[in-house]
Each structure stands twice: as structure tokens, then as C-alpha cells.
Amino acid sequence: MNEIFRGKAWSFGFRSAIMIYFLCLIVLPIVGIYTQSFSLGWTPFWESVSDPLAWKAVLLTLKLALIATVLNMLIGTMIGWVLIRYRFPGRSILNSLVDLPFALPTAVGGLLILLLLGPNSLIGMLAGKIGIEIVFHEPAIVIAMLFVTFPFVIRAIQPLLEELDRSEEEAAYTLGASKAKTFFSVIFPTMLPGILSGAMLAFSRGLAEFGAVVLVAGNIPGKTLVASVFIFGEIESNNPQGAAAVSVMLLTLSFLILWLVNQLQARRSTP
């Protein structure tokens, strides 16, 4: 009896602790932002949102995050594949380096991009000669987003590839399937849920990126000003209403993406 009671008490304690944590760190701030942005009613909210600088910032962020995500899907899939399927010296070091962008302060990432690709660097000069400007323009923002979201796709497909039984491939060969056919009908479907959920996480992280982007973007309103930097600017210029409105747009998008990821994973576990 005593033991059961203690067990229940423990479980109750744990659950309450988690609930409180969740409430304080996630629910309250989010509710706060929604209330803040609608505090003066619908009209001011609408005005803030329809401010061209605001929606241009959001659109730009969406566009660039999308580009970064697509690149991530391609590169991440290839890197994940190579790291799992090939054995070469330095593989395990490379594999642990994948997580570096998560460990590094994003501002350091931005600084690295400035140093490596800036107008005074070798690459920056070469690109400038053929008429491409990287830093303080859109390419730099994409690169910054790519840098901070780099591990997502790789880490999402690696466990799936490890799980994939070699004999499934061999079975396909004995059934007459070519290497390409086997890749597309056996291996790729196994990786796909990982690619998609990794991509969505990368996308929402890209939408939210501030530290790396603010250093390299130039932040010209309406041109290279992304949403997170826009929010920062609004707060700086004492306009919490505008900041909250854009935040609400970003938050809603993030929720949508999270929900999609969840749907994808649910589909995976009960196909």
C-alpha cells in the first residue's frame, strides 16, 4: 500500500513539476505575445501587420528560409548518407563536427561569414568580380541560415539510415531492381520522413534566426531586413505593438510547422 501511495505521489510530483515548467517557459510567454498584439484591438494589430516594412520583412524571411531549407535538404541528405554509408579516415570527427553550429553562439557564426565572405576576403572579391555581392545581401542571409540549421536534416536521417537493413537493399537486387531503382524505391522512402521533419525544423529555425543574420544582413528595411531583426528594431524604437504583431505571425507559422512535423511523425509510426 505504502509503496503504491509513494509511487503515485512521485508521479504526481513529477507531472506537476513538468506542467509548471511548461506553463512558465512556454505557455505564458506565448499567451503574453498574443494578448500584447491584440491588446489595443484588431485594428491596430492589422495596421502593424499591414505596414509594408513589416510584411516585407516577413515575406523576405519566408523566402530566404525556404531557400536555405531546400539547400539543407539536398546537402544534408548527401552528408547524412555519406557519414553513414562510407568508411573513411576522419569520419567520426566530421560526424561530431556536424553539431558545431548548435554549440557555437550564432553571432560567432555570423562573424565567421563576415570574415570568410566579406568584401575584403578572397571569396568575396572573386564573387564581386562576377557581379555577385554576398555580404549585406540576400546570399549572406541564406548562408547564415544554412549555417545555423545545418545539423537538422543530417541528424534526422541518420537514425533512419542506420535502421535500414542492408538485406532490404539486397532483397531488391535479387528481385531484379537496379541500384538506382533500389535507391528510389527502397532507400529514399525510408529517409523521406527524416528529410521532411528535419527540413521543417530547419525552416522554423531559419525563420527565427537572429544572431548570425543581424551581423551579415545589412538590415536595410524592405530589402534585407528579416523578421527577427525587424522585431528587434521595433522594440528598440519603443513600439512593442509592432514587434508583437510580427511575432504573432512568426509564432503562428512555427506552430503550423510543428504541427506538420507531428503529423509526419505520427504517419511514420502508424503507416
Binding site: 537493413d165 538485406s167 532490404e168 539486397e170 532483397a171 535479387t174 527502397v186 522512402p189 525510408t190 503507416p271
Partner: peptide
């Protein structure tokens, strides 16, 4: 040839 693998190696998806 047809091959039946020890762990069956069915296509899971």
C-alpha cells in the same frame, strides 16, 4: 534467383 533472407528483409514501408 529468389532469396529469402533470414530476417525476411521485407520492405517496411
Amino acid at each position: 534467383i529468389g532469396f529469402v533472407f533470414q530476417n525476411y528483409a521485407l520492405f517496411k514501408h
